[in-house]
Amino acid sequence: MNILLVDDDEILARGTAKLIYRLGNHQVSITDDPSEIFQRCQRGEIDLVLMDVNIPGAEWEGREVSGADLARALKNHPQTAHIPIILITAYAMLSERRALMEASQADGFCAKPVTDYDALLEMIDRLGQKSNSGSVDHNSGRG
């Protein structure tokens, strides 16, 4: 699976990417540039997005955006709506988590730091398969 990891902390992201590659055998590319995210998703290069909520400095269509904003934008674009998105955030409080899931329309959620990679990989596999098998049904991609 080709996974796009959106994170502004490059060192942290490199570690995460390497672990996912070595543990789950997925190709992981890293970016925090919104336009690159959209281009690559629209081109069909990406099977799943791991989206960090906190990407300070990211701008999209002239305004500052969070990972949750980008996730919602992807979900609302016909070309990218089918791509599963898992939110990764250090905002781990339950109330914050609910609000973020609601706002982002993401498919899954993962707390940062990731302590259980097996669970994360299982979620990636599950969402990736659904997305592949049910590409006709856009709704099936939503967890």
Partner: peptide
């Protein structure tokens, strides 16, 4: 949030 970011790097 601020504690989790360096912690994530350490753990990774």
């Amino acid at each position: 949030h601020e504690l989790r970011t360096p912690l994530a790097s350490t753990l990774n």
